[in-house]
Computed example of a mutant assay.
Amino acid sequence: MKPIYLLLAIGFLTISCDSRYDGPTDELETLPVSQVEMPIKFAKDSITEIPVHYIRPSVCHFFYDFYYVRNNFTRTVAIIALKQNSGSNCPPSQLDYTANIRFKPASLGTYHFKFWTGTNAQGVDQFEEYDAVVDH
């Protein structure tokens, strides 16, 4: 009786491991920042929300998170969107959206923010850059 269960289990595993999945898939995509409402001064250990604007290229793109890299007093920021691939039913969208990034400086000094705005014709990353002082 046990060999029958073993054969059935192997059969189900073989059938369920089909690698030809044609259904919708999701992927992460980096989107450029279109505008930033950047304060010029911050208070140490205080949380400030910075509004970051971006454009969704299609109705299948949704805000997922921020790309946020710290390097001493430099912060590099971009938008990470989740693109839901639902076949060809994904109309373009040029609507402006806003996501707030929360910044809490831990040290006094001047922070340099680099917001990724895309790439130029040669494929070089372009940034909108701001300096913000933490003086109290």
Rank of each mutant, 00 (worst) to 15 (best):
T30A: 06
Y5Q: 06
P3T: 03
S34F: 07
D45M: 11
P51T: 00
F115Y: 13
V69I: 12
F127S: 01
N85I: 07
S46G: 06
F113Q: 04
L28C: 05
F12Y: 11
P57K: 01
Y68L: 12
A132H: 08
D135G: 05
N85T: 07
S88D: 15
K114R: 15
E37Y: 07
D96I: 09
N120Q: 02
V69C: 02
L13A: 15
H53E: 09
F73V: 02
G109P: 09
N89W: 15
S34E: 13
A121Q: 13
S93K: 09
Y111F: 15
Y130A: 01
Y5E: 06
T74C: 08
F115R: 00
R75Q: 11
V52C: 05
Y68I: 03
H136M: 12
R75M: 14
P57V: 04
I50T: 02
L28R: 12
T76N: 03
I55P: 12
T117I: 07
A106L: 15
Y21C: 04
Y97G: 04
L108E: 13
K114Y: 08
Y67C: 00
D18A: 08
Y130D: 00
S93V: 06
D22S: 14
L108C: 10
Q84V: 11
F73H: 09
I40M: 08
I40N: 08
R75E: 15
L7Q: 05
S58T: 15
H61F: 12
I79N: 05
P39D: 02
R75I: 13
Y21D: 14
Y68V: 06
L108G: 07
C60W: 12
P92R: 10
Y67M: 09
P3N: 08
S16P: 02
V69N: 07
S93I: 05
C17K: 11
V52E: 07
L108D: 11
N89V: 14
D65A: 11
P92V: 09
P24Y: 07
Q126C: 06
R102V: 00
S88T: 13
I101W: 06
Y64W: 12
V77F: 06
G23D: 03
P3L: 08
T119A: 09
N85R: 11
R75W: 10
L13G: 10
F113P: 03
L28F: 14
T98G: 00
Y111K: 05
G123D: 11
I55L: 13
N85G: 08
A132L: 10
N85C: 03
A43V: 14
L82D: 12
V77P: 03
V77W: 04
L95T: 12
P3K: 06
D45E: 13
L7N: 00
I79C: 04
S93N: 14
V69G: 02
V77N: 04
